[in-house]
Amino acid sequence: MNDFDWGVIARSWPFLAEGMALSALLVVVSTAGGILLGLGLALMRRSDHAFIAGPATVYVTVMRSVPLILVLFWFYFLVPLVIGRPVGALASALVAFVLFEAAFYCEIIRAGINSVRAGQTEAALATGMRRSQVMRLIIMPQGLRAMTPLLFNQVIIVFQDTSLVYVVALRDFMTTASVVASRDGRPTEMYTLVAVVYLAICFSLSKAIELYGKGRAR
C-alpha cells in the first residue's frame, strides 16, 4: 500500500477548516452555557429544600446516565416540536450539548464547593454575612481554585464529545473529514489526519493543565 495521497488534505483544507470552526463553536457554547447552567444546578443541589434540590439531582443523574448520542437524538426531534417549526441540526445540537454538559459541570462545581472546609462558612456567617455573600466572597473564590483543573479537563472532554454530532450530520471537523474520506475514497489519509489533530490538541492541552496544577501546588 504505497498509494497514499496526502495532497487530499491540502485540497480539502478550506472545507476542513470550516468543520474545525463548527467544532470550536460547539465547544465554546457548550462550555459557557454548561458552566452557567451547571452553576445553577450545583446551587440548587445544595439547597435545604427537597423540592429545589430534588429536581436538580434527578436531572443530573439522568443526564449522566445516558449516552450523549441519545441526548442528541432527543433534542434533534424535541427542539423543533417545542419551538413549533424546523430549526436545523445546529440549534438542536447546541441545546443538547449545553443541557448535557451542564450536568457534568454541575458535579465539578459541586465538588469544588464541597472542597472548602465547613469552618470557612461558619467563620464568615459568624461575622454577620448573608449566605449569598458567603458563597460569593468566601466559598466560590476558594472552590474555583480547586475546580479549575477539572473544568479545563472537562473542556477537553467536550471537545472530544463534539465529534459525536456526526450522528445528526452536522459538519464538524470529524464529519467534514469523513465527507472528504468517502467523496475522494481516502479514508486512511483523512482519518489519520483527524486522529493526529485531535491528539495534538488534546494532548498539549492536558499537559498544560498538568503543568499548571503542578506549578500551583508548589
Binding site: M1, I156, Q160, D161, S163, L164, T192, A195, Y198, S206
Partner: peptide, 21 residues
C-alpha cells in the same frame, strides 16, 4: 494516545483504516 483521540475517531480508524494498513 488512546485517551486523547475521540473514541469515535478511534472506531473509524479500526474500521476503515486498520485493514488497509
Amino acid at each position: 494516545v488512546f485517551r486523547n483521540i475521540p473514541p469515535l475517531v478511534q472506531l473509524f480508524l479500526w474500521y476503515f483504516v486498520f485493514p488497509e494498513l
